[in-house]
Write a protein that binds this DNA or RNA. Sequence first.
DNA 1: ACTATTTCGTCAACCACGTTGACTATCTTA
DNA 2: TAAGATAGTCAACGTGGTTGACGAAATAGT
Lengths: 158, 158
Amino acid sequence: MATPDPARPGFALPLLLLAGFRTLIDDLHAELAREGHPELRPLHGFVLQAVGVDGTTATELGQRLGISKQAAGKTVDRLVAVGYLERVDDPTDARRRLVRVTARGADGLRRSAEIFDRLRAQWVDTLGPERVTAMEDDLGTMASANWFRLDVPGWFGG
Amino acid sequence: MATPDPARPGFALPLLLLAGFRTLIDDLHAELAREGHPELRPLHGFVLQAVGVDGTTATELGQRLGISKQAAGKTVDRLVAVGYLERVDDPTDARRRLVRVTARGADGLRRSAEIFDRLRAQWVDTLGPERVTAMEDDLGTMASANWFRLDVPGWFGG
DNA sequence: ACTATTTCGTCAACCACGTTGACTATCTTA
DNA sequence: TAAGATAGTCAACGTGGTTGACGAAATAGT
């Protein structure tokens, strides 16, 4: 695995994709920690993004992330505990508890986007703009069916 | 996120890499389940590969995977329970318990390699051989530092 | 208007995977 | 031979996931 067998080329591709993803995510969170967001974990960015500016409920968040409402609720609990999300009562429906991004959450989200832009720029510097856009196009072609499925830990156990 | 903001191009790249990885891993395990290995989870392939044909110990496995010896030991427990690994005493060192891939484990590993080859061939059919090798080359360039770090759940929590 | 159903959130129990700390047994070294 | 390093395990805990059950509140049907 470490040195892929040339007779077994297929094995390198998933490893390379994972390594590329990890590189970006690790760099993102190292920089986020430097910029005042050390508690932000890789999953949190996806969750904040899925909550969105309009807010949601735990049940709908679960649907967006492809996980159960209970799992979504627990994840919201953790984000609330570190100050990135807040829960407010829905005045029009006493069953619902609206989940909203706090100012701190919005700051983390904005910085994440900026850092990702800078990281992509590094890839462009190294590989050239054509190769990066080609990679994005090709991955989009191959992975379009999985675009929305973000139940990331789900495919690694559980 | 679902429709990446063109003004924030950086955000699409990690999502695409993740989606590509997931696509391959999901397809792999769907096919493995069809071929008689439904218990094999995404992590298991990495572990089997890291054990290798010569076997290892839990401690060394942990070092190879970038996780603690305790975590490696627990993962070995699970793989032993489903028949993919076995533990044998080391005749030269009573402290050590050699971890070896069983015949069933070797079968899963062999099938995984074959399936990955077929999946890569699908990518070649869709994208053309040049684009696939370009993607592999470029990812290898960008991600070379992370090649060995497979403590996958580690970057998602814990 | 009243019942029946659906929906939302939560609790509880459980599983997979990771962590650190402590401990025993064994091997190695001074 | 005593001292130190190493292998494996146990325990407690954290994160992230699952299913099942349940009460409270909204909605639908008669």
